[in-house]
Amino acid sequence: MSKQVRAIVIAGNGTNCERETAHAIRLGGAEVVDIVHISELLSGRVLLQDYHFLNLAGGFLDGDDLGSAKAGANRLLHAPIKDSEEHLSEHLRKFIADGKLIMGVCNGFQLMVKMGLLPALGGDFSQTTTLTFNDNGRFEDRWVYLKADPASPCIFTRGIEGMTLPVRHGEGKLVVDSEATLARIEEKHLGVLKYSLSDYSATTMDYPLNPNGSTAAIAGLCDETGRLFGLMPHPEAYVHRTHHPRWTREDDLPEEGMGLWLYQNAVRFIRDELL
């Protein structure tokens, strides 16, 4: 038990990607991957502390009715654990303080940003950044290229130069509350994944390679510890070559999809540092 990498994927109230996320984590090497409905956490029967790796999957929490993940963030911040004085948000803070890993994808990333978990500059969990409507005002499904920042503290992107993944969102444009926030993000290399040209040579602000007009082309963000990480593109949607939109014409595509790298890095890190 103690030598197992244990991952949890939270489901319910509009998450959609929990099953493929769990599959990707398993392929990434985790021994235990549980899809847990949020009601199980709120009932106190399942405890976050029993896991090393928390995954917030894509979807439309509460329909994104108040803006993406806004109502979901409100729930996680305020919902009490049944028959106790505690709130789920306190369990989450403890999880983070223990140096464990959190990865949010798409709606999960929106959730992290709106709860203040990212970029959490100086360890302060007040919201400084948001993800809002794409510049073209529309939801879009398309594949993009991402250039990784090798100087980033992010443990998920270690060794990755660039990757191609699909985006599927209407609210993926990253906006910061001030120039100072952006300067700190850039200075600490927290904008770890940026929309780029297809050869990863340079980042881009041009549609459609930058699908939403995101500030500084940021597609993925981490905190200063590198253990909290969120991104708009979907790594769980590219774990096998047949996920790639051009697998029928690109004969040299490897069997393993690029999205898997992020999960493999997470599992490796847990094995090295947390077990």
Binding site: F139, E140, P166, R168, A237
Partner: peptide, 18 residues
Amino acid sequence: RRYDHEVQAGTVLKPLVG
């Protein structure tokens, strides 16, 4: 493009190809 055609990660031949 306005429809998510690959959630659930099962769509191996998508509506737009080439």
